[in-house]
């Protein structure tokens, strides 16, 4: 069941000109370079490729502008969007295909949009580590924002974790402070946060991540997928996450998995294996080629810059946001009914 297009006040958030406030506050969480902004930049492309009627629309001028720019950087320029400075906030709507409403006694009622409002917070990754964030005030604002949000997209970059192993540093401190701030909230039941958490294992297109999944025999393919992309079923995503945590450079990523389990209610956590750019699709073949699937290339042999090689086919980018939006809407309807 999809939520309807109702909008309501959003306490603690500044209303924007020209549009009502978005309905669900969702925060992106991850260290610098983990792909938070890229994930959002891939959203329009992902919606477009689904061809199931869903689309993303800006809720106000600044957010629409940002959506256009982010999408263009990935789809047209084939470059990753610039690293976020400070904290950016985007208000977007996920709008599904219109559905017929039941006819009233006297007249036929107009079709109703299925609309999920997203108030997306995209902080620079440095803020998640107080030791690196510098300004305690900015860090405090981040905690305020997280207290007000009810959905979190947590990005786990397994390649970075394998090399640097610092995901725990960018999780534990902020999570402890968030829990401390919510101690007195009735929603902090059973010592767990009320947030819905989408854990996204990123860079599935990267050779080492895919091969780890293959080695664990977690990779399947969908016969209905015209591109024939490999995929990890949702029920297996957690196992891949847990395994990737075991090979952290510092050995601390195991604590990431355990910390998430400690702080969030299990029924409110879902795991996704994602890629913002997807696998390379040769235009001549038009499908996934197991021997030629890397979609990220150096700009030139001597250059450290990278470019996206082919068209972008995001994997599991819409799904986490849709799940969060739908879960939060259902939660809110449940509270209203009580």
């Amino acid at each position: 069941m999809q939520p309807t297009g109702r909008v309501k006040e959003n306490p603690g958030m500044e209303p924007e000109r020209g549009a009502p406030p978005a309905e669900h506050n969702i925060a992106m969480w991850g260290p610098p370079g983990s792909g938070k902004t890229t994930f959002l930049a891939a959203l329009t492309i992902a919606m477009n490729r689904r061809q199931d009627g869903w689309k993303v629309v800006g809720a106000n001028g600044p957010s629409t502008d940002a959506l256009i720019k982010l999408t263009a950087s990935l789809a047209t320029q084939r470059r990753f969007p610039a690293a976020t400075r400070g904290t950016e906030r985007y208000r977007w709507y996920l709008i599904g295909a219109a559905r017929e409403r039941r006819r009233s006694l006297l007249r036929r009622r107009a079709p109703e949009d299925v609309r999920i409002g997203l108030d997306l917070l995209d902080p620079s990754g440095e803020l998640f580590n107080q030791e690196h964030s510098g300004y305690a005030g900015a860090h405090g604002e981040l905690i305020d924002n997280l207290v007000n949000s009810r959905g979190i997209v947590f990005l786990f970059d397994p390649v970075r974790e394998f090399e640097d192993g610092d995901a725990f540093d960018y999780l534990h401190g902020v999570l402890s402070q968030l829990a401390h701030r919510m101690l007195d909230s009735p929603e902090f039941a059973g010592g767990r946060l009320p947030h819905y958490l989408a854990v996204c294992v990123t860079k599935f297109d990267e050779i080492r991540v895919l091969e780890t999944a293959e080695k664990l025999r977690l990779v399947t393919s969908d016969v209905a997928d015209p591109l024939g992309f490999p995929k990890v079923e949702p029920e297996d995503a957690q196992e891949l996450f847990r395994t990737l945590c075991e090979v952290s450079a510092t050995g601390n990523a195991e604590m990431v998995h355990n910390t998430l389990a400690q702080y969030f209610r299990p029924e409110r956590v879902r795991y996704f294996v994602t890629s913002a750019i997807g696998f390379y699709v040769d235009p001549l073949i038009g499908a996934y080629d197991r021997d030629d699937y890397q979609n990220l290339l150096p700009e030139a042999e001597s250059s450290r810059a990278v470019r996206i090689r082919g068209t972008v086919h995001p994997i599991n980018v819409v799904e986490p946001l849709l799940w969060l939006g739908q879960s939060l809407a259902a939660d809110r309807r449940g509270r209203s009914a009580r």
Partner: peptide, 26 residues
């Protein structure tokens, strides 16, 4: 190969890849 930096230059076909994924390499 350092993640986040460009991978080895890939011509039309990528170079032979290390087998086994992160787990076995680790």
């Amino acid at each position: 190969w350092v993640p986040g930096t460009p991978p080895p230059p890939v011509p039309q076909k990528p170079p032979p890849r290390p087998r086994g994924g992160i787990v076995s390499r680790a």
